[in-house]
């Protein structure tokens, strides 16, 4: 997907943080909070972004994927650490969020893995990240880029 077609295909309203179009069953009640990411060194290494995805509505929602002009291959990945202390990372299954519940994308667990960066992630800047849901709805959030050694949304 080129950057141009991405922008053409996206209603302008989606560029506003935390908003979505109202014609969908559930995803219009999704709120994304505390989004943050770490700066990258160049574009060869994958980036990661974190956030809390809250379902404030009355319908179950299923997060199915991500898009962003920043990376060619953004995916939700999950880090797992086994009893021997070995960590591995793999694409996560679809993430279902019940009404009133939230899912945390946080270090060492679920995260938005940003593969094939188009641009370096520079501390102090932000980038738009769109979450897509099974009902066809989308939620776009502006993700702040913090330092490489950041530990959370406040640091």
């Amino acid at each position: 997907m080129t950057k141009l077609s991405y922008i053409n295909g996206l209603p302008l309203v989606l560029l506003l943080s935390g908003m979505s179009t109202p014609a969908f069953a559930g995803s219009e009640d999704v709120v994304v909070e505390n989004a943050w990411s770490r700066a990258s060194i160049g574009v060869n290494r994958p980036g990661a972004a974190y956030m809390t995805v809250r379902n404030t509505g009355e319908d179950t929602v299923t997060l199915t994927g991500l898009t962003t002009p920043l990376a060619v291959m953004p995916q939700i990945h999950e880090t797992k650490t086994n009893a021997d202390g070995v960590s591995s990372m793999a694409p996560a299954d679809e993430i279902t969020i019940e009404p009133g519940q939230s899912v945390a994308l946080e270090p060492g667990g679920l995260h938005a893995m940003l593969m094939k960066l188009q641009n370096p992630m520079i501390e102090g800047e932000t980038f738009p990240l769109t979450l897509t849901f099974s009902d066809g709805g989308e939620v776009t959030v502006e993700v702040p880029i913090l330092g490489i050694a950041a530990r959370g949304p406040e640091s």
């Binding site: 990661a48 990945h77 270090p107 893995m113 050694a149």
Partner: peptide, 17 residues
């Protein structure tokens, strides 16, 4: 490894803390 997006920067940040 430095191409590690999640566990390694998190652990190195923890160690720094």
């Amino acid at each position: 490894f430095t191409y590690c997006p999640d566990v390694c920067p998190t652990t190195l940040s923890d160690i720094s803390g």
